[in-house]
Design a protein around this nucleic acid. Structure first.
Length: 505
RNA sequence: GGCGCAUUGGUGUAGUUGGUUAACACGCUGCCCUCUCAAGGCAGAGAUCACGGGUUCGAGUCCCGUAUGCGCUACCA
């Protein structure tokens, strides 16, 4: 049975790249009828936080990726990791390295590595030569017993090469001389990443490791460890990276909240929409259809459909209209306007509630009305936030008037100041009050006064909703009802606001 | 520095064994619809398939090289 895992380190919010890894693992588990496990890699005590763990769990939940079994916290397994390392020493597959720990500054590590490599090459030193590798066992044990600190390193053979088959990237080979004897245990006894992952994956019975491409080259080391440990090697599938628009690394420090999954939740994304979008980064369904429900995603998903080149996450910083990938935004709007209304309603409810616009009647007597409004206004919304912003006038008498709407639809025609109350008088007499009758009334008045119907329509739109844009106005009349429509048409509020704003009395 | 991976319109992708005008989605432009804005419909712009060689009757697809980008190379994860 297939067992896959998502293994994030809790050192910050859930990155969208990580979220995609989680998605692909989950999809694969669903597809194969396997298990999807969650492991929190919290071995870096300084950087790991509980808050981050919480946000990861919330993020997965939001995306609808339920994990099986108990969460595994890697830090809880440190003893097992150490024991495995000591066992490898016993077996002569690993050795104690008494070289004093080199001081390393995290920020300059990459540079330091390159410099060291250059220096070694220039001096003709084999970077893998380590005087402790062949230290006689007695001496090694004596020095350890005497309390001398040591790191534990895996012995990599000098000759030969590793090989594994990556499901996405194909056959991978690496010559042993290119791999340094990797450190398993720090001199303070702390187990290191490569050891911990392998032990935990064995322990958890992981059959398929699906993760970011940044782990591809390190996989050779892990394969060696599996072999040293006498465990069977899982299948590997590495996923192409998700890059920033400049094709650089997508990071929080440089790109801010666009990379955080919670941002999408907080800014009004429908989970299914974002999940759908994420699935299309690095993978494409065989039939090319892009709007896919979870069921379809599961059905169509295959590791073979994942391709190798990195995907660019397209957004424009400093441009609020394009704060994230346009296709994601489009897809969200598409979901909002096409998803079953019954599924959308609870999301709108949550949004209204958060903005104190929710009324319990919407769940009871006015349930039908509520569904009708949502159905009417969702057609042109892009995020759930829009229901409480542009949609505010439908749920509250206390809404703002858009400045451009006032100048374009009201102030430009001063006579509207009299025409709209006149329309209100007419509408008050209209019975029954429906979109059809409201339309007839309005058009009759326009004809009487010799003005274009559009003038009254657009003016009404701004009076009733505060906006210059929105659904068909006659639908709005009906949905808002006779009483509110008449009241708002008579209200002088936007006129005062216009005068104040524009300073002409 | 070494090793690895990648490279199809602005972006996401299709193009499985080489064979007609390189396909789809987002975005963009125009038109239609119309009470506005969307949606929808129609039309369109945009790719010398990174570059240079080669194999072949024929290459986005195979081979070699170059460039660029990214990753790994840590007593980080």
């Amino acid at each position: 049975m297939v067992r896959v895992r998502f293994a994030p380190s809790p050192t910050g919010y859930l990155h969208i790249g990580a979220a995609r890894s989680a998605l692909f693992n989950w999809l694969y588990a669903q597809k194969t009828g396997g298990k999807f496990l969650l492991r929190i890699e919290d071995t870096d005590l300084q950087r790991s936080t509980e808050e981050s763990t919480r946000s990861i769990i919330e993020g997965l939940q939001w995306l609808g990726l339920a994990y099986d079994e108990e969460i595994v916290f890697q830090s809880a397994n440190a003893d097992k990791h150490r024991a495995a390392a000591y066992k490898l020493i016993e077996e002569g597959q690993a050795y104690r390295d008494f070289t004093p720990k080199a001081q390393r500054d995290d920020a300059t590590v990459k540079q330091g590595v390159a410099e060291r490599a250059r220096a070694h090459a220039a001096a003709g030193i084999d970077p893998r030569s380590n005087p402790y590798r062949e230290l006689p066992r007695e001496e090694s044990e004596q020095r350890a017993a005497a309390g001398e600190p040591f790191a534990v390193r895996l012995k990599i053979p000098h000759e030969g090469k590793t090989h594994f088959e990556d499901i996405v990237y194909g056959p991978q080979e690496r010559a042993f001389p290119e791999i340094e004897d990797l450190v398993l245990l720090r001199s303070d006894g702390h187990p290191l990443y490569n050891l911990s992952v392998v032990i935990d994956d064995i322990e958890m019975g992981i059959t398929d490791v699906i993760r970011g491409q940044d782990h591809l080259t390190n996989t050779h080391k892990q394969v060696l460890l599996y072999e040293a440990l006498g465990a069977s090697v899982p299948h590997f599938a590495h996923l192409p990276l998700i890059l920033a628009p400049n094709k650089g690394k997508l990071s929080k420090r440089k790109h801010g909240e666009v990379v955080s999954l919670t941002t999408y939740r907080d800014r009004g994304f429908v989970p299914a929409a974002f999940r759908n979008f994420l699935a299309l980064l690095g993978w494409a369904p065989p039939d090319g259809k892009e709007m896919l429900s979870v069921g379809e995603l599961v059905e169509q998903f295959s590791l073979a459909g994942i391709h190798r080149s990195p995907a660019v996450f397209n957004f424009q910083e400093n441009d609020p209209r394009h704060w994230t990938d346009e296709k994601a935004l489009w897809m969200n709007a598409e979901y909002i306007r096409t998803m079953p209304i019954e599924e959308l309603l609870p999301m709108v409810k949550a949004e209204l509630r958060a903005n104190k616009l929710w009324r319990e009647e919407y769940d009871e007597d006015e349930r039908e009305w509520f569904a009708r409004v949502v159905d009417l206004i969702r057609q042109r919304f892009h995020t759930l936030k829009d229901f409480s912003a542009q949609g505010r006038a439908y749920f509250s008498a206390d809404f703002d008037f858009d400045e451009t709407a006032i100048s374009k639809n009201l102030k430009k025609e001063p006579q509207l100041k009299e025409l709209l109350p006149a329309l209100a008088d007419q509408l008050e007499q209209t019975d029954p009050f429906t979109s059809e009758s409201a339309e007839a009334t309005l058009r009759r008045l326009a004809e009487e006064k010799g003005v274009k119907a559009g003038l009254l329509i657009n003016g009404s739109r701004t009076m009733l909703t505060g906006q210059a844009v929105g659904p068909s106005m006659f639908e709005v009349f009906e949905i808002l009802g006779q009483k509110r429509s008449v009241e708002r048409l008579r209200s002088g509020v936007p006129w005062f606001q216009a005068m104040n704003a524009l300073g002409d009395v």
